[in-house]
């Protein structure tokens, strides 16, 4: 009987703590939504500007996403037009006109400047990482939860991420990307100037991701997200055998 009371008290204390700190997966799921991680179909455009060694390069993509799939089609510069990156879950295919077969590429691979391939598709940290809330900090005047994310698998974009999710709107506002050994090598901040309606619910949507090289702060890559809108995409759109043919 005594034991039962003790465990009851214990249970109460755990749930009390729960109320205090939100569940990390819940937080990630909420923040992922504003970075494209939505089950229904959406479409947005990306302008990518990379400054490296003082040289600037730009490119653009049209991204269509649905659930765990995404299709990014290069729209600029002209020479890359028609090239497609297809994200099937964590597998990424690169399809180039004239190439006999698509090549599977890695999410970690550098796409341009500081941006990795995985950065332009929809974000699904809740799926890809084990998260834990490790504290509270203020980022740009906003109170935020600080999370530590560890990759669930080797083929995700980053091994470890420190992620700050704002308390009020539950948006990922800052990320530090870490190597396996725990060194920060890139820092990203996020703006949420876009709004879109999904299933009748209006949500904030990411408008800009700014990535800075930790060792060379003058190298900055900016990914601008434009015109996000809900759109239904057929599943066949994301079938690799239908892409580029």
């Amino acid at each position: 009987m005594k034991r039962h009371i003790l465990s009851l008290i214990g249970l109460l204390m755990v749930s009390a703590a729960h109320a205090e700190t939100p569940d990390a997966t819940e937080l990630l799921r909420a923040s992922d939504r504003s970075r494209g991680g939505i089950a229904s179909g959406i479409t947005w455009q990306i302008d990518l500007q990379a400054v490296e060694d003082g040289e600037t390069s730009t490119r653009a993509y049209l991204v269509k996403a649905k659930g765990n799939d995404a299709l990014a089609e290069a729209t600029a510069p002209p020479r890359n037009k028609g090239e497609v990156m297809l994200f099937n879950d964590r597998t990424i295919w690169f399809v180039k006109p004239g190439l006999r077969k698509p090549v599977s590429i890695s999410a970690r691979q550098r796409l341009s400047g500081e941006a990795a391939n995985g950065d332009i598709a929809s974000t699904n940290y809740a799926r890809d990482y084990d998260g834990a809330v490790v504290g509270e900090e203020t980022v740009n005047g906003q109170p935020a939860w600080k999370l530590e994310l560890k990759a669930k698998a080797k083929n995700v974009t980053y091994d470890r991420i420190r992620y700050w999710i704002s308390k009020d709107r539950r948006l990922g506002v800052k990320a530090e990307f870490l190597t396996v050994s725990g060194d920060v090598f890139k820092i990203a901040t996020f703006d949420y100037g876009n709004r879109m309606t999904v299933d009748g619910v209006e949500l904030d949507f990411v408008s800009r991701m700014t990535i800075t090289d930790a060792s060379q702060p003058s190298d900055i890559t900016t990914i601008t997200f434009r015109e996000p809108k809900a759109e239904s995409h057929p599943a066949s759109l994301f079938n690799i055998n239908n892409v580029g043919r």
Binding site: K96, I105, L111
Partner: peptide, 18 residues
């Protein structure tokens, strides 16, 4: 005996050849 080779071009974009 066909393989696809993908790599980043000197200009910094993804490229591939057969």
């Amino acid at each position: 005996a066909n393989v696809q080779l993908a790599g980043l071009t000197y200009g910094g974009s993804l490229s591939a050849i057969d």
